[in-house]
Structure formats: structure tokens, C-alpha cells
Amino acid sequence: MTDLLSAVERTALLTAALRAAESAREDRLYHDPYAARLAGDTGLRLLSRVREVTFPSDGRRTTPSTPDFNATRTRFFDEHLQQVAWCGHTPQIVLAPAGMDSRAYRLDWPSGARYFELDQPAVLSYKKERMPDAVPRVDHRSVAVDLTADDWEDPLLAAGYDPSLPSAWLIEGLLYYLPGEDVHRLLAGIAAVTAPGSHIAADLVNTTALTAPGTRPLLDVFADWGCPWRYGTEEPEQVFHEHGFTVEAVQPGDPAADYGRWPDPVPPRTVSGVPRVFLVRGRRR
């Protein structure tokens, strides 16, 4: 079944493998009981390659720690989605893309909430095959779409999404793989179907991260897999502002995203020429 997944889609198996490894730690930041079965052998192989370049045999790590980033990112977005769902009166949750995410199954959701998972047909089919008996804790709807297509919103609307109601969108693990024009097209499409006050969250990197020597070993791995990183920005707030969203961008290790696990310094935004990853959250104006 993994043969039907594209290179970018297979990175979802890497994410699942990272979540499985995190769930096995005594100091874990979350527990994902579905991650191991979703990762499969392919996810474990991808994780092994990432570990090789992140933690070389000589012990001198120069690349950012992918396991610690993934743990921080997952916990950050877990807390964000739970807060807006339970305290923000947000009846619609949309994951774009869904990948191997299991939040619909491992977290509690308010009665009446609708949870939409958007992704390519092959991804959704693989996920269903790996979790045949899993029961979601929410009104869960899988929607097969290509998020780079011009009409990806139509299947979402047909699945029962109501653009007049508040919603919370999560764009996790996607934007750096897209060309800039596709990033802006996706954000414009989301803005077109979100009511004022709706929430959005995403992760992305800065432009320096795409070329910095410290990140090059990791990015070379993704390029070898056929899914190079293409997009970054030094001003994520401005990118989202252009599409009607007011957001804040924090870095792993900042007070708003510090769970005691980020191992590296966090340079202030005023310092130029350093690679960064941003965790973004905000609302539709």
C-alpha cells in the first residue's frame, strides 16, 4: 500500500514513527497509541535515516533535532486545537492535510463537533487499512482532495463543512514542500471558506533554513527521497496577514512552545541569518 503514496505523502509515515517513538518515552509530551501501526516498517526506515544524519556517530550534532521538534510541534498543536474546540466554541476542525494524524481518535472533542480530515485518496486509504477497528471520538469525516488543486474546497463543502460557522484549521507538515504559489493558493482557498473569528495554525520554516549549512544534511535526505523543501519565509505573520489572518509565530523553545525538550538556543527574531522553524496560530479577521 505504501507504493501508492507519493514521496511527500510518505513523510506522514515518518511523522507517525516519530510520534510512536515519543509515546514510548517516560518523559513523553503526549501519547499516541495509533502511531506505531500507522508508521509501519516504512516509517521506521525513514526515521532511521533521519536519526543517522541528526545524531551522527561522532556525537557532534549540527542539524536541528527532528524528534524534539516533532514532539514540541505535536504537543503545541494538540493544546491549540483542544483549547479552541472546548473553550472557543468552534464546531468544525479541519486538518489539511491529515496525514497519519490520530487526534480524532486519541483526544476528546465536544459533543456536536465535526472533524474533517483532508488528504489524497491514497493517504486516506492507507490510514483506513492500518486502523480498521479504530473508533473516532468525534463526528469524523474523511475528504479525499488534492490541496494544490483549484477546486479542493468543493469536496469539503459536499462533506458537510459549513463556511458560515467558525472553524479551526491545522496545516501541519506541508507548507515547506510546496512552491510559494501553491502556499498562497492554499491560504487563499482556506480564507475563502472560513468565517470571521475562525482559527488557523501551521508550521513553516524561514528562508535561511532552506540553505543553511546546519540544516543541509537533513534537507539532503528529503531531497533524496524526492520531496525537497521548497518554501520558507522570514515573515510568517505577513504571509498570513495577506490572506486575512492575524497570527503570532513562535519558535520551539519560546515560552509559548517550551515543554522542556528543545535542546538548542532560540535566537531572537532580530538576529538574521539563522535557520528557524515557526509554529503559527491566529484567527481570521
Rank of each mutant, 00 (worst) to 15 (best):
G226A: 09
W169C: 12
Y231Q: 00
Y176G: 04
S164F: 15
L124R: 12
D254P: 06
S57D: 02
A192V: 12
R269K: 08
G59W: 09
P228I: 09
Q120P: 07
E181S: 05
R49S: 12
L174D: 02
I93Q: 00
A20Q: 01
L46N: 01
P213H: 11
P136S: 01
H241I: 07
A35L: 14
G273W: 07
R10K: 12
V271L: 14
T207S: 04
A104G: 13
Q83E: 14
A35Y: 04
T246L: 14
D182E: 07
S198R: 10
S6Y: 15
Q251E: 12
A168R: 01
P179F: 09
S198M: 06
E235W: 07
E237A: 10
A188V: 12
E237Y: 05
G180T: 13
G244H: 11
P267K: 07
A12N: 07
H243E: 10
R114S: 11
L5M: 08
S23Y: 07
V193D: 11
T90L: 09
A134S: 07
L5N: 05
A39K: 02
A144D: 09
P64W: 08
D68L: 07
R216I: 11
Q82D: 11
T246S: 13
L95H: 10
T63N: 09
L165Q: 15
M131F: 08
D182I: 06
T72F: 04
W262A: 02
H243W: 08
D27Q: 10
L156F: 12
S198Y: 04
V53N: 03
P252E: 05
V94A: 08
D224F: 09
R230D: 10
A212C: 08
A104P: 01
L46M: 08
V239T: 11
S198W: 05
E26L: 14
D78C: 13
D224R: 14
V143E: 00
D264I: 14
D32Y: 07
A249R: 05
R283C: 09
E79V: 08
A159P: 04
P236T: 05
F55S: 11
A223M: 05
L38N: 02
A192Y: 15
S125P: 06
V183I: 11
C227A: 15
D58H: 15
L157A: 03
T74C: 12
Y176H: 10
V250N: 00
A195F: 15
D119C: 14
H31W: 14
T233V: 11
P265C: 07
P252S: 15
R185Q: 03
R284I: 04
N206L: 10
R283G: 05
R130T: 02
A158D: 09
R137A: 06
L95K: 00
S102Y: 04
F222H: 15
W86T: 01
D58G: 15
P213Q: 06
G59N: 10
D41M: 10
